[in-house]
Nucleic acid binder design. Structure first.
Lengths: 123, 123
DNA sequence: GCAAGGTTGACACGACTCTGCTAACCTCGG
DNA sequence: CCGAGGTTAGCAGAGTCGTGTCAACCTTGC
């Protein structure tokens, strides 16, 4: 009783049990384990799972994106390199109206949303 | 002569012509165009392409990652949301030793490196 | 005017993502 | 002890990424 089982956690967070395991494999939300190996989700985990859902849906990002964001936070080298590259304008600043890659980045998620995923009560 | 053709640019930057078009479609390096539609790469573009190469290889990131980083810079909402999520510890701070997702994020690139891509003189 | 090389569009392929499902096995509660 | 439900491992299938290649057509240089 030091946490909910994976099925319970799944039901109240809206993820499937399968996805909870996947998310764990990605290191994003890692529940405790009972002595016998059962996953035990505490309130903090549930909260984190719910906000994760929010985050991904609202901003149309992927788990990989989040993983990369994490790297950006913990690898200053990387952060500097990336920011440096992004802010150094190629030729003329007006060339890229800050919309092309944005389009691109969002298009690839656009398609994901059009496929009717079984549990996805966004509508 | 206001820029190199795609083939020339490809040769001196190490990308393939195909990839230059792909990179352009991602909005990351967009050359000028001649009246007849030929891509014209200037010194700035070449520089950007070289550093892009560096960036991706050294830090093992993808074009999508870079696209996401760009979004982070221009969408404060997103940035705040992501940073907020990442810094809110799930239960105990020691749970995730800042290595799991890092592993995960790098593993997926690890494999990419093991496949012998035709032009990739990293060795 | 013709070969070399540019343009877009499409197919293809392997690796990876996200997700469901099934199998074989372990654990818990009554 | 037995059924519900947990665990891992793996297949599967649609979609994306990175990349090559090929076709059909246009442009340039000589």
């Amino acid at each position: 009783m030091t946490g909910l089982t994976i099925q319970e956690a799944a039901e109240i967070t809206g993820w499937s049990a399968r996805m909870l395991r996947y998310i764990e494999s990605a290191g994003l939300v890692e529940p405790h384990r009972s002595v016998s190996g059962y996953r035990l989700y505490g309130p903090g985990h549930l909260q984190r799972l719910r906000t994760l859902r929010e985050l991904l849906e609202v901003h149309e990002i992927s788990l990989s994106d989040l993983g990369f964001a994490a790297r950006l936070q913990t690898e200053p080298e990387l952060r500097k390199a990336v920011e440096g590259w992004l802010t150094s304008e190629p030729e003329r600043p007006q060339d890229v109206p800050a919309a092309s890659w944005l389009r691109w980045e969002q298009d690839k998620h656009q398609k994901l949303l059009t496929q009717p995923s079984s549990h996805k009560e966004i509508a």
